[in-house]
Design a protein around this nucleic acid. Structure first.
Length: 560
RNA sequence: GGGGCGUUAGCUCAGCUGGAUAGAGCAUCCGACUUCUAAUCGGACGGUCGAGGGUUCGAAUCCUUCACGCCCCGCCA
């Protein structure tokens, strides 16, 4: 049990014993660490509800409080709690024997299917894919740690007009490829944007792309063959990018998987009166002021409304390992919010799955320093690989200042900067992608967290050399703050899980690291009388830090 | 026109759902390595919380109006 929950339980009982609503006894970390470790604001509410002075309410509650902590009244009506030194040391001792640091399993037994990544075939991944990939992977690890059974599906954009566009482009510009001439990711990287750009300005080309799309979907062998090869080349490239980020999936399904289901699904929905025809298109209407979802356009083609709905049906029917998921989580750009509301409502209406089992984990746009969606100086989007290489170069430069550069270490540092840079932001907000800020490794960054862990390991080794082994934790400058931070982990985990936000844990990790470093600076280990006790505490904190970094997908190098 | 999100320190962002003196990082300035990794630590500077009105003991937080910005709105995904 954490200090916070233990104290809260006592405070609530005291409120009850005093004749007040126990719900008023909510305890939280204090806003004023100079005055208290925890605070309860319930006396203010009690004063109002039971018509008495806040201090009188406090006196009544305090009369029933005892054990392990000191309380004080502070105007206008705060109940301040200070943990005793014995209480702190006791908590440190109990944490030392707990690999999970008191963390519960708020997602225990839940079977969750996570849809994230979502790259398009034939198109290289760029910085825009970072958010979905890293938030998705972070959530997967977070939820798994919280006791859930989680599986991920990359949900490739491998079908539809975009594919027709590229094939139409190939047919015209590099017809030999259609006849079997080899091509690679670099070729695809040129073709896709060219095809996409041309579709916007050349109506005739767009019309042709539509015909190609229809033919591909109808199974035209030559188109199908080149599509297969594009998939092969593309997936290999995507795997490289995902591997480098440490992002993995159980399923590499794509939109193409559901194509065979669409006719039957739409017919069924029409027959059951869930869907209806309108202007030649098939749509689902909603009672709420929600625009209808288009399943099939007037030309008989299917868009992603139909595909996404079929995906849900398939995930319920085929499920994950061991059956249907309890919930499906979509880590997708916030701009798709309306679309998912429609699709989720449609899934509910169709009877595939109830809406409360579908969640859109929306995230904001990555903007450039100008406040508009991020573009490179050249005006294009930055490739994921280019970003990673740029980070690697920056990390290598930094490591050079210390001596020999280990390539793996440089890569770990670079990825830590990328991941923490992403995961420390609230996913729901847009954020500014600033190259200079990203390649800085000081302050609230991934490398700072790694550095904190690395120097402690170094310290442990040096201490061992001179015969200092971690002993029973002792208190010193900054140790109170450190133990309180470690104690807060279970609550932060609960919050991160409830809000589906790895960023909550990222912030907590920084908090822990910050306090570790303060202790490190203030308390000498080697040659100090209580060195063994402080070392124990630092290493305990390091263990929690490394645990959280693991959840965030950040590795800790041996040296840096 | 309808809807969503946002506006907090020079910059980038927190602020645990109504509480104390609104907090970090970066930037700037001042300190701290002959002894454990200075990618660090300590301190200073810096804010009419977009504007007005309201709700109440109390508002960055809730309601409302307005301004500005980004985004979405039946046959692209």
């Amino acid at each position: 049990m954490t200090l916070q929950t233990a104290i809260e339980s006592k405070v609530r009982s005291a409120f009850e014993a005093a004749g007040f609503d126990p719900a008023l006894g909510t305890v939280r970390p204090s806003d004023r660490p100079d005055l208290a470790d925890f605070q309860c604001n319930g006396c203010l509410a009690a004063a109002k509800r039971y018509r008495m002075a806040p201090q009188a309410a406090y006196e009544k509650v305090a009369a029933h409080l005892e054990g392990g902590f000191e309380t004080a009244f502070a105007p206008p009506g705060f109940l301040n709690v200070r943990v005793t030194e014995e209480g702190l040391l006791g908590r440190a001792a109990s944490l030392a024997g707990d690999p999970r640091f008191g963390a519960g399993t708020p997602a225990e037994g839940r079977r969750l299917l996570l849809d994230y990544g979502g790259p398009n075939v034939a198109k290289e991944m760029h910085v825009g894919h970072l958010r979905s990939s890293l938030i998705g992977e972070g959530l997967r690890r977070l939820l798994a740690f919280a006791g859930a059974m989680v599986e991920g599906d990359v949900h490739l954009g491998d079908w539809g007009l975009q594919m027709g566009q590229v094939i139409a482009w190939i047919e015209e510009d590099v017809p030999e490829a259609l006849d079997g001439a080899p091509f690679d990711m670099d070729d695809l990287r040129r073709w896709y944007p060219a095809a996409s750009a041309r579709s916007k300005e050349d109506e005739e080309f767009l019309a042709r792309a539509r015909r190609v799309t229809a033919a591909l979907q109808a199974g035209e062998p030559r188109y199908r063959a080149i599509w297969d090869r594009m998939m092969e080349v593309s997936k290999a490239g995507l795997r490289r990018d995902f591997d480098r980020l440490g992002v993995g999936f159980e399923y590499w399904y794509g939109e193409s998987r559901y194509q065979g289901m669409l006719d039957g699904m739409v017919d069924d929905l029409l027959a059951r009166g869930v869907a209806e025809e309108d202007d030649g298109a098939v749509i689902i209407r909603f009672e709420e002021k929600l625009p209808p979802l288009i399943l099939r356009n007037s030309r008989g083609g299917y868009g992603y409304g139909a595909t996404d709905l079929a995906t849900i049906k398939d995930r319920v029917d085929e499920g994950m390992a061991g059956g249907a998921p309890d919930a499906m989580l979509y880590v997708v750009d916030a701009r798709q919010k309306l679309h998912f509301r429609q699709v989720f409502a449609a899934a509910g209406r169709a009877g595939y799955v109830s809406r409360d089992r579908l969640e859109h984990i929306a995230f904001g746009t990555v903007n450039g320093p100008d406040g508009k969606p991020f573009k490179t100086r050249a005006g294009g989007v930055m490739r994921l690989k280019d970003l990673a290489d740029m980070m690697l170069e920056a990390a290598t430069e930094r490591l050079k200042e210390r001596g020999e550069v280990d390539t793996d270490t440089a890569e770990q540092v670079a990825m830590a900067a990328v991941k923490f840079g992403e995961l420390s932001h609230d996913r729901e907000q847009n954020y500014v992608f600033d190259v200079d800020a990203f390649t800085r490794f000081e302050g609230r960054t991934g490398p700072y967290l790694q550095y904190t862990a690395v120097r402690l390991e170094s310290l442990r080794a040096k201490a061992a050399e001179v015969g200092i082994e971690p002993g029973a934790p002792t208190l010193g400058t900054g140790t109170r703050e450190l133990i309180l931070a470690l104690d807060a982990f279970p609550a932060q985990l609960d919050r991160a899980v409830a809000q589906r936000k790895p960023s909550v844990l990222a912030m907590h990790a920084y908090d822990v690291a910050n306090r570790i470093n303060a202790c490190y600076a203030a308390n000498r280990i080697l040659g100090a009388e209580d060195g063994a006790g402080h070392l124990a505490l630092l290493l305990l904190a390091r263990r929690q830090l490394v645990l959280i970094l693991g959840i965030l997908g950040i590795e800790v190098p041996a040296e840096m």
